[in-house]
Amino acid sequence: MSEAAFLLSTTVNGEPVTVAAPHHWTLLEVLRYKLDLIGSKQGCDKGDCGACTVQLDGEPVLACLTLAAHAQGREVTTVEGLGHCHGGCHPLQDAFDRWTAAQCGFCTPGILMSAEALIRKRGRAVEHTEVAEALAGNLCRCTGYTKILDAVVDASQQMHPAPGKE
């Protein structure tokens, strides 16, 4: 192995992964071009669009501005791992389907990762305003944000039903 590469040991979607990566590669490049996890999108590639949002130890971060070295020993969750604990399909993904919130779909993986963190941290059904704030770093160029907000609110209600409502 040349000096320009290092061994990255990390956990991706619950699976331990060890992969050789050049020092100057971002986490996004390792996910997409070494691990074939192409769900996280390479949009602006400089922190404007949020299409590359993944979770690092449960926090939404931009994989395009995260050095691969910064993922050493940490837990990376991408959209591919979102449904693992839910039999393959997360309630958010189900809601995006029912509300036709994916539209062209390019921004969807990033939005799902930001939205999942919001619902998990709140631990309750969320409201439109907090969803809008949590998704403020995820651009949708189809600009159909209404359906996206509706879908996230709906998913959070499915995950945290109000007492007495089944």
């Binding site: 926090e59 971060v61 995820n138």
Partner: peptide, 9 residues
Amino acid sequence: VASPSIRNM
């Protein structure tokens, strides 16, 4: 500052 994910980083 910027966006929530950038503030996380």
